[in-house]
């Protein structure tokens, strides 16, 4: 079957892939060659080809995280040619297509690098630090049942839209991976902003930002130095404005909350 671009020629590529058997082991870059890669393939489909080749050759396939392959679950997490999710802006690895590469290219593929994201195996990393940050306060404390009617509190469309834009974070970790400081501020700020903007989040506004920032620091992420790599590499376009909101929320909470600890 032909693809959407019948004139596209198949490509041969050299891959330099980080291989590491498990968390404790030393890793290294290993070179592989893949042939007849269609430009219409997604990047992960190209890796599928590599893995099928490896398996046929009796070698261990490359472990990598992926799931929905439509850019929303946030599972895929490859550092491709020195960039989070590769060269295309606003794109997850699974939505990156091989037409962005050329025949004969050498592609370096590494896992996210951060102390807080240890490598499980090869290209798969442990991002549970993100979950723990959310557990520290990234929610509205409402139990199931007893919620007032959804239309009880009108929310200006503009506010709802801004909250939505912050809420679209997929938790992939590209921001941490791209940041020189391995800072998780963009991730944290997206959740803090979303809930700070909405009236529902207002009740726990102060404790939320205090606890989430404390957890972020505890996990060992770096501090933001406003470089902007995170927002530039974010596949869903979370804006740096959120980090300013986080800073502001943090400062205001620390200055005015009753929390002496």
């Amino acid at each position: 079957m032909a693809g959407s671009n019948p004139n596209a020629k198949p490509m041969n590529l050299t891959l330099k892939v980080w291989r590491q058997p498990n968390r404790q082991a030393q890793g290294q870059i290993v070179e592989y060659h893949v042939k007849d890669i269609s430009p219409d393939m997604s990047f992960l489909e190209m890796l599928d080809v590599l893995n099928e080749d490896l398996l046929h050759a009796g070698q261990d396939p490359v472990a990598f995280d992926h799931d929905c392959r439509e850019g929303i679950c946030g599972s895929c997490d490859l550092f491709i040619n020195g960039r989070s999710h590769g060269p295309e802006k606003g794109t997850t690895t699974c939505q990156l297509h091989m037409r962005k590469f050329s025949d004969g290219d050498t592609i370096t593929i590494e896992p996210w690098r951060a102390n807080a994201f240890p490598v499980n195996k090869d290209l798969s990393v442990d991002r549970s630090a993100f979950d723990r940050i959310i557990q520290a306060g990234g929610y509205v404390s409402v139990n199931t049942g007893g919620a007032p009617d959804g239309n009880e509190i009108p929310i200006p469309k503009e506010i709802a839209d801004r909250a939505f834009e912050a809420a679209t974070c997929i938790g992939c970790g590209a921001c941490v991976a791209a940041c020189k400081n391995a800072s998780a501020m963009l991730f944290v700020s997206a959740k803090v902003s979303q809930l700070a903007l909405l009236p529902q989040g207002n009740v726990e506004r102060k404790t939320r930002v205090e606890n989430m920032v404390a957890q972020m620091d505890k996990e060992g992420f770096g501090a933001c130095t406003n470089i902007g790599s995170c927002a530039a590499e974010c596949p869903v376009g979370i804006s740096l404005e959120n980090i300013a909101i986080l800073n502001r929320e943090f400062l205001a909470a620390k200055a005015t909350s009753n929390n002496l600890a």
Binding site: G82, R113, N115, N181, A182, A223
Partner: peptide, 13 residues
């Protein structure tokens, strides 16, 4: 702190 946050193994590329 920020250097530590990247971890011992940095990026090759």
């Amino acid at each position: 702190r920020n250097k530590t946050a990247r971890g011992a193994q940095g990026y090759v590329s």
